[in-house]
Computed example of a mutant assay.
Amino acid sequence: MKEYAWFAWLIVIPIAMGIISGLLQPAKKKRNRNRRKRPTKTMSKKTSTLPSRTSKSCRSDEVILTLALDQLNGVEFERLLALYFRGQGYQVHEVGVGGNDGGVDLVVVDKRGERTSVQAKCYADHNFVPVQTVRELVAAKRNHNCILSLLITTSDLTKPAKAEAEKFKVDYWHGGIIEQKLRAWGKWQPIKSRRA
């Protein structure tokens, strides 16, 4: 009889463990389902905030060509640069208009077919472009099959950003250079500038 009792326990224990495991399993699935839903809710929140970020108004090209750099918002600055590069004979692809650009706002293609990724940063004079922006541009240029990269800002780069740009051969135009290039182009004629 003791032999049968031992044999019965060998059967009862695995069955009991299976039942307990089965009871606990749906609880795990519910937790996983809730975990899956949380990122979806977060994504929908991010998606709902994107239109306000990308819906900055962009005045007409004629108006943009009469505004000083400090009177432009980011979208308008990108548009001004697109007009400038087209005026210089480049083919221009506006890939990141108004944010959510992944590090590249414009892809400009010269007559030889060389592609350059351009990141535009319309900042106030006291806000400098951080090193992270340079790193994003370096990584993003590969996604657009670009050989060269150019960072254009209305202000300047931080010292670490300049060092990173030199290291990865990222050309950059700060506020003074871009203003000089736009004036030499001739189509950009700001009526009133707050800068001297």
Rank of each mutant, 00 (worst) to 15 (best):
Lys141Cys: 00
Ala124Cys: 07
Ser44Phe: 10
Ile11Lys: 08
Gln119Met: 00
Leu81Ile: 03
Ile64Cys: 05
Lys192Tyr: 13
Thr42Pro: 00
Ala124His: 11
Ile13His: 06
Ile13Trp: 06
Val138Cys: 00
Asp125Pro: 11
Val75Cys: 08
Gly89Val: 05
Lys141Asp: 01
Arg33Glu: 11
Asp105Ile: 00
Thr49Trp: 06
Phe85Asn: 02
Val118Lys: 00
Gln91Phe: 10
Gly98Asp: 11
Arg112Cys: 07
Arg35Asp: 12
Lys169Tyr: 06
Val63Pro: 01
Thr153Val: 05
Gly87Tyr: 07
Lys37Thr: 09
Val108Ser: 11
Leu50Pro: 01
Lys37His: 11
Thr154Tyr: 04
Thr54His: 11
Leu10Phe: 13
Glu166Thr: 09
Lys192Glu: 14
Arg31Val: 14
Lys45Phe: 07
Val12Trp: 15
Lys45Leu: 10
Thr116Pro: 03
Ile178Val: 14
Glu78Phe: 05
Ser155Met: 09
Asp125Arg: 12
Pro14Glu: 09
Lys169Ile: 10
Tyr90Phe: 15
Lys141Thr: 01
Tyr172Asp: 05
Leu10Ala: 13
Glu136Val: 01
Asn145Arg: 04
Val95Tyr: 03
Tyr90Met: 03
Ile177Gly: 04
Leu182Trp: 12
Lys181Gly: 02
Lys141Ala: 01
Phe85Trp: 10
Thr133Tyr: 01
Thr158Ala: 00
Arg79Ser: 04
Gly186Gln: 06
Asp101Leu: 03
Gln189His: 13
Asp125Thr: 12
Gly98His: 09
Met17His: 07
Ser117Gly: 05
Arg38His: 09
Leu67Cys: 07
Asp105Ser: 00
Thr153Ala: 09
Leu157Glu: 01
Arg33Ala: 13
Gly176Arg: 10
Lys46Asn: 13
Ser57Cys: 08
Arg115Met: 04
Lys2Thr: 14
Asn127Arg: 13
Arg36Leu: 14
Arg31Ser: 06
Arg38Pro: 02
Leu24Thr: 14
Ser57Asn: 11
Ile19Thr: 12
Ser52Val: 10
Ile13Lys: 03
Val108His: 09
Lys159Thr: 14
Leu182Asp: 02
